[in-house]
Nucleic acid binder design. Structure first.
Ligand SMILES: [Mn+2]
Ligand SMILES: [Mn+2]
Ligand SMILES: [Zn+2]
Ligand SMILES: [Zn+2]
Lengths: 148, 148
DNA sequence: ATCCAATTTAGATTTAGTCTCAATTAAATG
DNA sequence: CATTTAATTGAGACTAAATCTAAATTGGAT
């Protein structure tokens, strides 16, 4: 895979700011996750690199994920089981999650109001938000039914 | 430790509902976490049991935590490092968290407005919320300073 | 009091994620 | 462009967290 563009992006300026090198591996991972639409975790990302025949080590994937998070390229997300999942901030509109404790269904939601109040909270605490993770756990409609 | 009360509580009715046994270990853990004010994880909880000379296995702690979560006795929280932390829903007022990506400081916040909109979202999706976990990651005031 | 399915125990095992260090590479320097 | 050097990577060892196993125990139904 060749770099699609040489324009500075969120990630390259982040690396620059922090005095970190723009390596082949970091660039590759940035471009890979930017194109991902769904939820992924460190391993599924590593496996997709192997399918690409990109020879990037597992350790490098694990080391790069925090950089992608801190640069705002990806956000935390949810998925099967307890592992940490992520998703691109550019590949898909921002959303948060409802998770059913019974059937493990995941419902995505978005609330402009909540996002607005979040920003107010950050201002109040002089906090600069990079990403957030808002989850509600409970019982989905169909599991509530069954309970009866 | 003796049971403080024989009144049915959130946890005992939860166990009843689910047809689960009210064992000595479950009762002990329920009473233990109910009195905890701070953030804890599976291991710190296990260690505190050992200090009590309560002979409850690590596995039992791990198996009981999801029950305490699903019954709404505890909620997810944050703490040092990547492990899952929890805190009692009764031991302390509900709050959510701002986490600094640089110095790892944790700031607790509360927003009635956000809590209200959360409930609206749940209604909209016919979702019964048991607990939630709302985190914002970014840079705290003092870390923003240093950046300059 | 008896019975049995649910639960617990202790330790083994699995799994996710981190660490190590030699080899490589980005990029600063002249 | 060639040299230099500190940052980064790769491969696999290692660690820590969490889960699993199977025998022993127990809650609670009968
Ligand atoms: Mn959001
Ligand atoms: Mn909240
Ligand atoms: Zn459900
Ligand atoms: Zn900070």
């Amino acid at each position: 895979m060749k770099t699609q563009t040489d324009m500075p992006n969120r990630f390259t300026s982040f690396l620059e700011d922090r005095g970190l090198k723009l390596t082949y591996e970091r660039r590759y991972l940035f471009e890979k996750v930017s194109r991902l639409k769904g939820h992924f975790n460190a391993d599924s990302l590593y496996e997709s690199l192997q399918r690409d025949k990109a020879r990037i080590a597992r350790g490098t994937v694990y080391r790069t994920i925090p950089l992608l998070l801190e640069s705002g390229v990806i956000q935390k997300s949810v998925g099967e089981g307890k592992r940490e999942f992520f998703e691109s901030q550019t590949g898909k509109e921002h959303h948060d999650h409802l998770v059913c404790l019974k059937c493990h269904k995941v419902i995505e939601f978005h609330s402009d109001e909540i996002e607005k109040f979040q920003d107010q909270i950050c201002e109040k605490y002089d906090f600069e938000m990079v990403f957030h993770d808002h989850r509600m756990y409970g019982h989905c409609g169909s599991c509530k039914e069954k309970k009866k």
